[in-house]
Design a protein around this nucleic acid. Structure first.
Lengths: 257, 257
DNA sequence: TTCGATTTGTTCGTATGTATT
DNA sequence: TAATACATACGAACAAATCGA
């Protein structure tokens, strides 16, 4: 039979905050370290409770926060999993562009270019790497209902995605974040976006089939992984002639009593 | 001693979902009906548990969801309150415009006009009122660090805010949502925003001190109260020459272990 | 198809800690 | 200091979903 785990939290130790927060940090660290393989379930509530020497309710509270932050998903009868960055997840959690009727659809994409370059000072600062460090730059055009609506210029540190190259990227059968996750073990857990309006330059206007000078959304976006390290910079231009960026805050609608 | 309340939930009744969801609906209904006065605490956990005939943990789960949806705030030792739509709350919960360094500041405002008009068909549809129904239209210019950055055109149904007039609105010593809440008992609990890019027309450009045709953010926004009724339509234009609309999703940063 | 084992989801109750008045 | 109220933590029981024998 197994002996008491060394992970058990000392009962009298001085913690910065509540116990469940410490449990959450420990679980996050295990997720980061790759202790639990992709697509496999985490240990059950009862096992985690025993491992950390806390009650099931405390583990549940830690896991529930990670679920609400969309890091984990739990399925009754099955277990707790790292949320897979698949199409349905991305459309639901991260994709914000809707059509005139408010509908979201998964876009088709066309890879425009894939280059190995050196980080510009500006993007390097954002990614917290050295200016001139090797990066991969990917230009991608996204279509909704056959029309080009979104132009993306993705910059990722080469060190974070060792061995990434155009063929593998082009032939992936999944979302970009899903590719990061399954191929490189990099799970995006947070997105920050800064949205501005710009007059489209010739390149942007041409790709989005707009008149030069047309107003477009310019979205600068940073994606982070568990420990807050930025892993992707994306400059996105969105044509809002037929679409809008949708955002909602506050109380969800409640079903009738 | 008090007898069992008629609000008690039947133990064997058929509920659509879990018990805490029903408790949440009941609490929401009481909030809507004005049963609990503004600025006063709701009944304590134990009192609500007794009233609904459920355990404290079930009440806590219902209240916790309303807290996470920013409808309520709980203060230990004090009680549970409807979240006051004051400056700090609005800046934290709803205001999304940041300066070049990512800082949020509360804007100064200048009332441009206050008119009683009839709802246009388009806005009437959004507000779910009849075209031509009486509405109040308020134009407001917001300044950050002395510069005009946001132009707002607010449309609210007159029926929702009986007796609202320019002097009271102009002299309010609080946020607009705080005024709705304290003066008319209308608490905004949800915001939907559709963000587009536009070339500024002469009026918008003039107010925001931009060249005509400059790209600006055009944000169409609907505010709802508890039961999902829209109570305000706001068309907002934002100059992003010195500012950006900031949005973040996913896992919060965690303190070190 | 049925059954049993596993796992999460919900509900209950209790005890203790902490902040406020 | 005492009373009140929320916050945390524990443990237990049962329901519901899933999967494999």
């Amino acid at each position: 039979m197994p002996v008491a785990s060394t992970d058990a939290l000392a009962p009298g130790s001085l913690l910065a905050g509540p116990l469940y927060a410490e449990v959450k940090r420990r679980i996050t660290q295990s997720l980061m370290s790759g202790e639990w393989p992709q697509d496999a379930a985490l240990p059950s509530e009862a096992q985690l409770a025993q491992r950390f020497g806390v009650s099931g309710g405390t583990v549940r509270k830690a896991l529930s926060e990670l679920v609400s932050e969309r890091v984990l998903v739990r399925r009754r009868g099955l277990g707790t999993f790292v949320a897979s960055r698949n199409r349905d997840y991305m459309l639901d959690a991260y994709f914000r562009v809707v059509d005139a009727k408010g509908r979201k659809r998964f876009p088709d994409s066309e890879l425009l270019s894939f280059q190995s370059l050196q980080a510009s000072p500006r993007v390097a600062t954002q990614l917290r790497i050295k200016a001139g460090a090797p990066v991969l730059c990917i230009d991608n055009l996204l279509f909704l209902e056959g029309r080009p609506v979104i132009l993306d210029c993705i910059v990722v540190p080469a060190a974070v995605f060792p061995g990434m190259a155009e063929p593998g990227f082009r032939d992936r059968d999944m979302t970009i974040f899903g590719y990061y996750q399954s191929r490189f073990g990099v799970t995006v857990t947070r997105l920050d976006e800064w949205i501005r309006a710009e007059n489209a330059d010739d390149r942007v206007a041409s790709h989005l089939r707009l008149a030069p000078g047309s107003a477009v959304l310019a979205i600068e976006r940073l994606a982070y992984t568990f420990d807050g390290t930025p892993v992707e910079h994306r400059q996105r231009w969105v044509s809002t002639s037929e679409h809008a960026y949708f955002n909602t805050l506050g109380m969800k609608a409640q079903a009738e009593a």
